[in-house]
Design a protein around this nucleic acid. Sequence first.
DNA 1: TCTAATGTTCAAAACATATTGAACGAAAGA
DNA 2: TCTTTCGTTCAATATGTTTTGAACATTAGA
Lengths: 151, 151
Amino acid sequence: MQFVDLGGRSAQRLGLSRSLGQIYAALYLSPRPLGLEDLMTQLHISKGNASMGVRQLAEWGAIKRVWIKGSRKDFYQAEENLRTVVSQFIGSTIRPRIKSSHLQLEDMTTELKSKGKPDPDEQFMQDRIQTLQRVHKRLEKVIPLIEKVLS
Amino acid sequence: MQFVDLGGRSAQRLGLSRSLGQIYAALYLSPRPLGLEDLMTQLHISKGNASMGVRQLAEWGAIKRVWIKGSRKDFYQAEENLRTVVSQFIGSTIRPRIKSSHLQLEDMTTELKSKGKPDPDEQFMQDRIQTLQRVHKRLEKVIPLIEKVLS
DNA sequence: TCTAATGTTCAAAACATATTGAACGAAAGA
DNA sequence: TCTTTCGTTCAATATGTTTTGAACATTAGA
């Protein structure tokens, strides 16, 4: 299905697995909660894959588990507020990565500076890294804007 | 080298190959242009990899080829204006993808609408896709902000 | 023209990651 | 208690991507 395909490809672009995107897409378009069985047949994926997928998505708050009276299967439905989904993804995945780069750049500058008496080449490196840090800081400011634009 | 590693990992996060990031990082920190030979030895990558890497980066305008008198090797240096690099990357890679998703969503809505008389489930899908389109449009607005924040 | 230096190409290999599926565990109902 | 249904786990497999390296192309200089 076209929408599910789009979900799969979008997920891959974001560095996630295709099936995560497919699962979310299928749930997002379904008026009724779906069980593992449904996902397996609709998406042609294995039970293991479906199981791991829904767990991951539920951890991120992108889908939620619902109970349906009279069935002992687990059912899931998409968190329909996309702002929430995006925020969650940013918080759990994007932000930590940015922070990590941030820290590494800091490490490098402090180490360089601690050596004192930089020769011209070291000075050049130091300058470049500082420039990069400034750019990095500016880029970080975009993150809150993403969330703002979705409100 | 730490900075080169960071470049490699960052590239991978952006969906590029590790060596692209490493090559750019090495050039970015080097006060002098580097040739293929330098890249091969500094980064422990093959000649083919280095050759393909610099071509790609040069196409994106992230590095430029420079001639050094008295040598017939090709040398490269990083485009030092990171704003340019980012813009280029957005234009050549991010924007087309967004546009593609955009078009696919439009396709789906028009197809759904053309069928007339949606049953309740079709109606639900139609609504969800429309919501998604609105979110998508809002997210698109962030792109110019990225470029703005770098000016 | 021949040789040496350099860059390019692309099929094969290496690598990384996602997916499968069989075995297992838990728990409900008979 | 036994059986069935359902979800989970994870080693093996499949898939997709990157990297290698040997063969080739091109050009400069001898």
